[in-house]
Structure formats: structure tokens, C-alpha cells
Design a protein around this nucleic acid. Structure first.
Length: 278
DNA sequence: ATGGAGACCTGAGAGC
DNA sequence: TGCTCTCAGGTCTCCA
């Protein structure tokens, strides 16, 4: 699934056709994604203007003129397709099987926006005006000024879990996933097996800086396209060509040429270079 | 309280 | 060709 850079790329694709537009119709092709849709889901969106489309962690947040907030998560395989009705090959270009077109938004500017998600780990939820949402309690945005070495250090203090698992915890820092955690740890020369609470001041400072760098570079490249990710035009991101370690088991480390190692930590693959990452 | 494993789902690719 | 097995970018829930 898309991590922060991919979600940000999707937001930038949707922004021109969604922000400021009114939802003319909302079609649900099944009763649920990962979670059931709220019974009033359609009624609460139709006729509303989308006043602001933003991103928080890996969520897209659409502020509605009613004051409600619509949260959309892509899960592992979710994607948005913009169909202007004059591009019959578009769905084909996305290689998106129409049987997984689960939600369709029609906007008053003529744009048709399709949410396609084969694995259905994605979800859409509404938060009523003033209502608390779980996203309100996660960690800082890594690209904001609220995130830096001291903040990361404080979040990791006393943690006995591995640094790999700690960085995937959205309460520590928001938006990181398996790819960018592996890449940031490599750049910071830190082994994914280290205890999170045992990193030095120098290491946490370096790690915070490398997290910002790797995410910024990935956004610039339009995200990473593995199996499932394409942007709203069906175009692919390019950052996967710049991976140092992710998915490169057995291939040479770009720094020391030692074969990259793959291990499994809490059920997920971790890729790293043993000599480089201490 | 915290950390780890399992669950949720489909599809692609490898190996036989 | 076709079967079986493994793996996949996330996050929630349950159990130790």
C-alpha cells in the first residue's frame, strides 16, 4: 500500500478536480470495504461541497461544507481513478479490474472519481462535526516542523521494541510504512534489529533527518510503484528505482557491495546491509 | 501497559 | 497448462 509519499501523490492528483467541487452523486457498489459503510454514508456526502482536501499520515481528509470530515484510506491496494468521460482507455491504462470499483463520486464539474481496491483493506469513514476520530491522536507529520531529532528521541524513550517496529507505529511518527522505514534506517546506518529506546542522540538526529529526506525525494519522484500503486492518471511513480535496500535481497549494497539481507520482523520483511547498519 | 502474532482480502509470480 | 505456495506498500484486535 501506499505510504505517505504515494498518498500525497494521490492527493495532488485529486485536488484539482475535487477541492471546491460539489458531490452530485455517490455510488457504493458493495456494503463494505474493510469496515461497513455508515448507513447514511451517501446521504451525508451528496450535495456537499468539498471545501478542503488534505492529507494526514496515510489518510486523505475531505472537509465538507456540512462541517463533517470524510476520511479515505487506500489500504494496501486502493487507488483513485479520475475519469472525465472522454478518456475511454483510462480504466484500461490503470489495469484496474472494474469488479473492484467499489465507490464512485460524480462531481458537479463533470469529473468522475472511481475508488478501486482489490484487497479491500482500504476504508472510508465520516466524522461528524466536532466528533473525535482516531487519526486525531497519531504522531507528528514527519515533514512538518513538529518532527525532529528531539521529538523522535522522546517518542522512542524507554521503548523495548525494535526500531523497525517502532517506526511503523503511527503514534511515534505518522505516515511511514515498510519501504521508507527500511530506506531511512539504511541511510541512518542503523540496524532494524536495534532496540528503539537504545539509540543515541546522534542516531536519532540522523534518523529524523533521513526520514524527512527520503520522504521528500519520494514525493518528488511521484511515489513508488510496486504492484499496485499508480497515481490518479494511471501514471507510475519512479522512486522504486532509487531504493537502496527495499526489495533488493541478495543484490549488492550501494555503499559496500555486501549482499543485502532480508529478515522477517513482526511478520514483515526488513531489508538491510549488515556491515553498514550497526 | 506493551509487544508480538494473527486476521482481514485478492492477485501476481515462482516452482513443480 | 495448471496446480500450490509465498508474498505484498496497512492497521486493527487479541493474547501473553
Amino acid at each position: 500500500m501506499p505510504e505517505l509519499p504515494e498518498v500525497e501523490t494521490v492527493r495532488r492528483g485529486l485536488y484539482p478536480v475535487m477541492e471546491g467541487a460539489v458531490f452530485c452523486s455517490v455510488t457504493l457498489n458493495r456494503p463494505d470495504l474493510r469496515f461497513p459503510f455508515h448507513p447514511d454514508f451517501v446521504a451525508r456526502i451528496e450535495g456537499q461541497r468539498l471545501t478542503r482536501l488534505s492529507r494526514r499520515a496515510k489518510f486523505l481528509q475531505a472537509d465538507l461544507s456540512s462541517g463533517e470530515r470524510l476520511f479515505m484510506h487506500l489500504g494496501m491496494s486502493g487507488r483513485f481513478i479520475i475519469d472525465h468521460q472522454n478518456t475511454p482507455d483510462l480504466v484500461h491504462a490503470h489495469k484496474a479490474n472494474p469488479k473492484h470499483h467499489h465507490v464512485i463520486f460524480e462531481m458537479d464539474n463533470g469529473a468522475i472519481i472511481i475508488f478501486n481496491d482489490p484487497r479491500r483493506f482500504g476504508f472510508m469513514e465520516l466524522a461528524a462535526n466536532g466528533e473525535d476520530y482516531r487519526l486525531d491522536h497519531i504522531g507528528p507529520e514527519p515533514l512538518s516542523n513538529q518532527f525532529n531529532g528531539p521529538v523522535l528521541r522522546e517518542a522512542l524513550r524507554g521503548k523495548k521494541s525494535k526500531i523497525k517496529a517502532a517506526l511503523l507505529d503511527q503514534r511515534v511518527v505518522a505516515g511511514l510504512g515498510n519501504i521508507y522505514v527500511c530506506e531511512a534506517l539504511f541511510r541512518a546506518l542503523i540496524s532494524p534489529r536495534r532496540a528503539a529506546g537504545r539509540l543515541s542522540v546522534r542516531e536519532t538526529d540522523a534518523l529524523a533527518a533521513h526520514i524527512k529526506d527520503v520522504l521528500s525525494e519520494a514525493i518528488q519522484a511521484g511515489g513508488s510503484s510496486l504492484k499496485d500503486f499508480s497515481n490518479t492518471d494511471g501514471k507510475l511513480g519512479y522512486f522504486q528505482h532509487q531504493f537502496d535496500v527495499y526489495g533488493r535481497e541478495g543484490k549488492p549494497c550501494p555503499v559496500c557491495n555486501t549482499p543485502i539481507k532480508r529478515i522477517v520482523q513482526s511478520g514483515r520483511s526488513s531489508f538491510f546491509c549488515r556491515p553498514c547498519q550497526k
